[in-house]
Write a protein that binds this DNA or RNA. Structure first.
Lengths: 217, 217
DNA sequence: AATTAGTAACTGACTGGTTAGTCATTAAAG
DNA sequence: CTTTAATGACTAACCAGTCAGTTACTAATT
């Protein structure tokens, strides 16, 4: 009974997984994992739900693949940043933060922090993987750059364990905003101006200068 | 047939809504809105699902109540901060950021930013309400404090439209971390040290000083 | 103090709609 | 003709929302 002659079918075994994870990423970020229907994911990828199950064992397996696929480019982008490294810690930090925004935050990948944060409680093993492979690694890069500046006497001796998170948090926040409130509450913030202002603020904050009266320590 | 004599029931009409929204907030933050079962919410509040429906018309109505109930204390906390205001913009910013962490970020309410961000796409009207009542209002407070410092010549002339978000983002990020990755990837970050380091960094960044060589503008 | 009547809070089995996951069938390609 | 990608109707489970029935409490009556 099933499967009357309907629409033309293409056969593209190689391209399917990417198409499906791309569609799934967009929908998971927009609506959340639990609220996303697999029929929707399949439709957005231009196939039927049955086809989805040819490539992924379960909805959970699809989620894991989405994170894994999204994380590989993030790592590669990180490597690329190091390749362009300058000796000057100021320039290095500038490049790192700006590149993170250009290559991750402002792209489709910018939805991954929101998705991973939302679902960390439901998929702790995936969260651990993401933490090890992306977060800790990215923080280490930032820490190294700042430490170099401290050693050169350019930066104040801030705590290396904290500074990485402080530097990336406003950029992640902007990416999260674009993938949540932006759709309904468009504040007219210009992303590039925001990134510039952030870099400007933290580089000034890191610079050696007379201590602020009333500041702790 | 139904309702054999089972456990003792208490009658507490006044306390129920709070108990239910408290339970719902905790579960919505932990698992997400769609993945939370109303039976769980009721059980956590110590009642049955039927009782939940005596106080809330639907799951969506419960969500809206959770946000509304969580937002009122946030506003009151904001008012309280203004009451303690100092003339000194530096002290004012210190108090504002530290108080936000103490009264919101580090409490149960600290889960609301994560929850609201995760569900903004599914509940745009609630997101708009939250944006107007909490976000824009809080940003205005920060903007005012910074503007005062600029007018007094203590702070550099940063863009007031951007600085509020830049100041609060790292604190929201910490709250989000505590409500997501912290459960599975406990990094040993001390929240108070983080807040101190953030305040220290941004106040230094805001201070008037010779411009950084190579900085834009 | 004990009995009864009335009422408001509460319960949990039930149902109707939804959706993750399956599989017999079909179309494309060699 | 065989193989493999793809389909979509199907089902088994799950869960939001309902409601007939039960319990706790109050107050009036004796």
């Amino acid at each position: 009974m099933p499967a009357e002659p309907t629409t033309a079918r293409r056969r593209r075994k190689e391209a399917r997984p990417q198409e499906l994870t791309d569609a799934a990423l967009a929908l998971f970020v927009e609506k959340g994992f639990a609220a996303t229907r697999l029929d929707e994911v399949a439709a957005r990828a231009g196939v039927s739900k049955g086809t989805l199950y040819l490539y992924f064992d379960s909805k959970e397996a699809l989620f894991k693949a989405v994170i894994r696929e999204g994380v590989v480019p993030a790592i590669e982008a990180g490597e690329a940043m190091l390749a362009e490294q300058a000796d000057d810690p100021v320039t290095l930090l500038r490049i790192f933060l700006q590149s993170w925004w250009d290559r991750i935050g402002s792209t489709e990948l910018g939805g991954i922090p929101k998705l991973m944060m939302s679902e960390a409680g439901n998929f702790p093993e995936v969260a651990r993987y993401y933490d090890e492979v992306v977060i800790q690694r990215g923080l280490a890069l930032l820490r190294t750059a700042v430490q170099r500046g401290i050693d050169q006497g350019i930066f104040r001796p801030v705590d290396p364990a904290l500074i990485g998170t402080l530097l990336i948090a406003p950029l992640i926040h902007l990416a999260n905003w674009r993938n949540s409130f932006a759709a309904c509450c468009g504040n007219g913030i210009d992303p590039q101006a925001y990134v510039d202002a952030h870099i400007d603020l933290v580089l000034n904050g890191l610079r050696v200068q007379p201590s602020l009266p009333g500041a702790p320590q």
